[in-house]
Design a protein around this nucleic acid. Structure first.
Lengths: 239, 239
DNA sequence: CGAAGGATTGACGCTTCTCAAATAGGGTGG
DNA sequence: CCACCCTATTTGAGAAGCGTCAATCCTTCG
């Protein structure tokens, strides 16, 4: 539907922080009007087409990103190509903060993505004297840790069926928190992505989903699922 | 060897932040002398015996802790008792920061632990106007995320043998960074702990370790292991 | 309309789990 | 100091869940 976009194509719009639709979801909510005006000057609005990388593990870490639209896949690769998806970033999420001079993981767009690019140096100078912003970034990191911890429980201790259920419930909750419809849960990522997120194979994901559908627990629809027997899914998810 | 210690037994020593041996490893390194003096007044030195909980998932989150001695196990439980160990905390680590009013996971002492207890309210007031401290706490949270991400790769995409190797290398690196000997790697945690950390069973951990020993890759010694064929372990660990 | 990639389904195998029992080790009390 | 007990660890045999390989189907898009 939309034509190929060059890597990290800059929009011609300026970063419109003051009018930003997802500001209340993002770290920028900790800034006042004059600070936002300052941020406008040091940030850039960028777009990425499906599968296009925002950054890759090992790259020089030049910038972080505030996702404003679309879904981003964050992952690590083993030398032989095995992939573990660490998480998916949604609008409001703040990604690409590296500990060292290089990114510790890779990120690419699952579907077309818009984001604010925050170049490392200017941005770190910008925040260094803003305790409220630092607090908010701390809260965001803590929240990421909570997600990571639940993810570890799934990876280490849940069966394939429980993993899928926990994934669907967790994804639904995240969509809900950013104000998306949850009547039918939109799944922009592929079966392979779900498999690599849950430590399974595509085949197992596919089989498990169709089994859940045959049992009338879920309904598979194009681009997502509906939870028919919500209680059953939730029971599997906590287990 | 030592008698039973009541839960979270307070030492009679004051919190000696100025002389603290692990300050350079901890978040407190971001504080100057007068700030440390302030911290002394609002923190308490506490001890925990083996297996004693520092806090439990679902408890009201009253305080966080700076570990100064010993090893802490951080974990989550499923309703049926399955356990996933999220990580181990060592001297210098800052644990028990909750996002909400309740702890999101449980923590207990693997071996006798000393820590500084930082009551939530006074501590959050203490840091709110200290950007350097907030920065450092951010760095610590980021570092935890890096560990979590590597852990997820192990849980989701590595074989039992690779998990064990990656665990040994990762543990060795952490011991090294806090200045511990790595000639023989001290493992204070049980086989069951290692299993619950790696998403395996005790039997698989035991079998894998003895297989590695039979192949002359490692040597199992009381309380730890020695890496005989370091190259082999490292090769398994990256894979 | 046809090609290409994604998703599903099936048959079979293997790694890891489960259940069970033996062994070792550490702490306690006599 | 030694014997005993309790727990941790190791080892074995068999089962099962999930992975692998392969073929088919479906969808999307040129």
């Amino acid at each position: 539907m939309c034509h190929r976009i060059p890597p990290g194509h800059p929009d011609n719009e300026p970063a419109g922080c003051l009018l930003c639709a997802i500001r209340s979801l993002s770290i920028c909510d900790a800034l006042d009007e004059s600070e936002l005006r300052e941020l406008v000057r040091l940030s850039q609005r960028v777009r990425f087409g499906s599968k296009e990388p925002l950054f890759s593990e090992g790259d020089q870490s030049d910038a972080s990103f505030n996702v404003s639209e679309g879904t981003v896949r964050l992952y690590k690769l083993l030398p032989d190509g095995r992939r573990q998806i660490i998480g998916f970033a949604l609008p409001g999420d703040f990604i690409g903060v590296a500990t060292g001079i290089r990114y510790g993981l890779s990120a690419d767009a699952v579907e077309p993505v818009r984001a604010c690019r925050l170049p490392k140096e200017p941005f770190s100078r910008f925040i260094e004297s803003k305790p409220r912003m630092l607090q908010r970034m701390n809260d965001f990191a803590r929240n990421e840790l909570v997600l990571a911890q639940n993810h570890m429980v799934s990876l280490g201790r849940r069966s394939a069926e429980e993993k899928i259920a926990a994934f669907l419930i967790g994804w639904r909750d995240r969509l809900e928190r950013i104000g998306r419809s949850t009547k039918t849960i939109h799944l922009p990522m592929s079966r392979q992505d779900i498999a690599d997120y849950l430590g399974l194979t595509v085949e197992t994901v596919s089989r498990t989903l169709t089994r859940l559908e045959r049992e009338n627990t879920i309904l598979i629809v194009p681009g997502g699922v509906r939870l028919i027997n919500l209680g059953r899914v939730e029971a599997l998810a906590v287990a």
